[in-house]
Amino acid sequence: MKTTTRATLLTATLLASAGIAHAEGELQIYNWGNYTSPELIEKFEKEYDIDVTVTDYDSNTTALTKIEAGGHGFDIVVPSANYVPIFVEKGLLMEARPDEMENFKNVAPEWVDVPWDPGRHYTVPWQWGTTGVSVNTSVYDGDVNTSAIFLDPPEELVGKVNVVPEMNDVMALAIMYAGGEPCTEDRELLRKVRDTLVEAKPKWMSMDYGMTDKMSANDVAASVNWNGSSFRIRLNNPDVVYGYPKEGYPVWMDSVAILSDAQNVENAKLFMNFIMEPENAAMISAFARYANGITGSQEFLPDDMKDAPEVNVPEEFREAGTFLPTCPSDAQKLYTAIWTDLQK
């Protein structure tokens, strides 16, 4: 009897899942890990009867390498601003003209004519944020608004700091800590940057991603981190605060783009238009806890985001933020060399 019931159940489940799988169309999204709101995807699937698959990547370089290699089957990618020109130059993105889409009017004016995609012919805003440090104040209660947290860790944090292995963010923080501008090619300064990083590394515990989980669970006491992740950690672990390094910190935006070899172009365009709807943009932010760049999404945001210090940059730290540009390839080469050496 029991086996029969189970068999029936199994068949029913199979039938049900087959029913779901039989959607009008498909969409393959390639996005950063732990960054895509499941509710948003569910809503999109229901509204357009499209089957969405989300695949994760952990860094811009990973995404670029995999897409350039071909045969990936993805329709949509979400590169950071400084990587968009590289993607475009290599012919990897489709000129999808989101600026002619119905919901484009909702994009906040300051995010329309952006240097990496003037007039938004390729991309629409996904989320923007800052890179700083997350610190567990029950381990260290000193000043957190400095890159010294990981570049010259205080006694309490030695052997307990993590550094996310995202080259551009970490290099920018280290360069600004040494007194330079992002994208500098000043060799004297870069030598100082390298020496600082190399000296600091033995004091780090790890160079890994996934801080939202690991700092929530007290596996890591401090880390280079992104503001939204830090916000989510604080909700689980109230001791964790987000620091804006006063020496300078990067501001970034990740944008949604359609790949030039996308199989489901129409569905991808539907998705682009869909996420520029304020209510939907708010769903993106409610999950990953970053700001989104869509006017009118404010009123749909969860209450705890409205005055969160991670999302609303305090007045005194605003000056220190710099939007990360795309560095010239010579600078990029130097950074890669320093970075690869550091990772070994």
Partner: peptide
Amino acid sequence: LGGGNNMMLGNLIELQFGQGRN
């Protein structure tokens, strides 16, 4: 389990094909 800090040969190779771009 090494947290990106206790690299082995396999990880070093992966680094060159990914972020190392070599």
